[in-house]
């Protein structure tokens, strides 16, 4: 076996092979130890590890199917959440109603229940849409996850996490709902650049993205007005954004609905190495757009400081979103791994 000849063969079909290695110094570390330490028997294994690092999914930009499946995972998370809380056994297409669901609904105004059912419908339809889109693209959609993979209390499977009363207390339910929708908005924004090569798929993703934002705004209104409000839009935001948020994100919203668990949703993302040049993932209180600090440049407008962060939502990269979403999976689940 001649390692360098293999690389040379790869180079014929992938001229960037050396660049791929070059951009990943860990690989070179592997290679320097090669002659000294590796026995012939260990060689195939070591090479497998090198190529995984160069070509593995964790270090290369996601493909269109990767991004669509990533989005599909988030849509499953959202759809199951509304299904379990409001109607159905969690899975897509099940519409039975349990006593617990009737009880939760009874603690909210009819207007709010109707709004939540609309959101539930959208999220279930997003699951179906993305599943179909992946199939039409010739890719394989992920298998529907088991409901038991999720623990929406944030307890990682013990059902008694920080959101222990998520399906019996409307305030907790709305807090988690807002967190999921705000995460979704940032996630689609972060995924969009990887869909840009396909106009129709990009447009479809943008058309989901804005619907998630519409949901988030409604949920935020419901939170500031209270679950029993019959007209949440008519209630002004209070001074504490964690309990009485505006419909848009102001600064980092004090860490969101439950700061100990939700602060990362409004924080900065860790840009993966494959991120296209110039795209960054600042926290939601960012006021610099396109390299221009708008707050200082437009200081003469005398607008409130918060307006400059509110006017722009921020993206999050895929790995950061997966970490956030894994708050709601059970220990050992690889769904958001």
């Amino acid at each position: 076996m001649n390692f360098f000849q293999i690389l040379s063969e790869i180079e014929k079909t992938d001229p960037e092979v050396f660049e791929r290695f070059d951009s990943r110094r860990r690989v070179f570390k592997h290679m320097t130890g090669f002659g000294k330490k590796m026995t012939a028997a260990a060689l195939p294994l070591a090479m497998g590890s090198i190529f995984n690092k160069a070509y593995g999914q964790t270090t290369s930009a996601p493909s269109i199917p990767d991004v669509l499946n990533f989005a599909l995972k988030l849509e499953y998370l959202e759809a199951y959440f509304y299904n379990i809380g409001l109607q159905g056994d969690g899975t897509i297409g099940n519409n039975t109603t349990s006593a617990a669901q009737t009880s939760l609904r009874g603690k909210m105004s009819a207007q709010n229940v109707a709004a939540l059912l609309k959101i539930r419908t959208d999220e279930n339809n997003h699951v179906n849409f993305l599943t179909d889109a992946l199939k039409k693209a010739g890719a394989t959609p992920i298998t529907a996850p088991m409901v038991s993979q999720f623990d929406f209390t944030g307890g990682k499977g013990n059902g008694n996490g920080p959101f222990a009363d998520v399906f019996s207390n409307p305030a907790t339910f709305l807090a988690v709902a807002q967190s999921l929708e705000d995460t979704g908005v940032r996630a689609y924004k972060g995924g969009a650049p990887y869909l840009a090569s396909n106009d129709d798929i990009l447009t479809a993703a943008l058309n989901i993205h804005s619907v998630e934002a519409r949901h988030a705004a409604r949920l935020r209104a419901m939170r500031r007005a209270g679950a029993m409000s019959t007209a949440p839009a008519t209630v002004a935001a209070g001074t504490d954004p964690t309990t009485s948020p505006k419909s848009w994100i102001s600064g980092q919203d004090g860490g969101g609905a439950s700061p100990a668990q939700t602060a990362a949703i409004y924080g900065a993302g860790n840009a993966p190495a494959y991120t296209p040049a110039g795209i960054t993932f600042p926290a939601e209180d960012n006021v610099t757009q396109g390299g221009v600090n708008l707050q200082s440049t437009l200081a003469s407008l005398n607008f409130p400081a918060s307006a400059f962060s509110e006017a722009f939502d921020e993206p999050l990269p895929v790995p950061t979103v997966l970490t956030i979403a894994s708050t709601f999976t059970v220990t050992g689940s690889t769904f958001f791994a």
Partner: peptide, 17 residues
């Protein structure tokens, strides 16, 4: 594209409310 995305979701929040 990302900057447009940063703006459009705020517009959607406006529209919703």
């Amino acid at each position: 594209l990302v900057i447009a995305g940063k703006i459009v979701s705020v517009e959607a929040r406006h529209a919703s409310l």
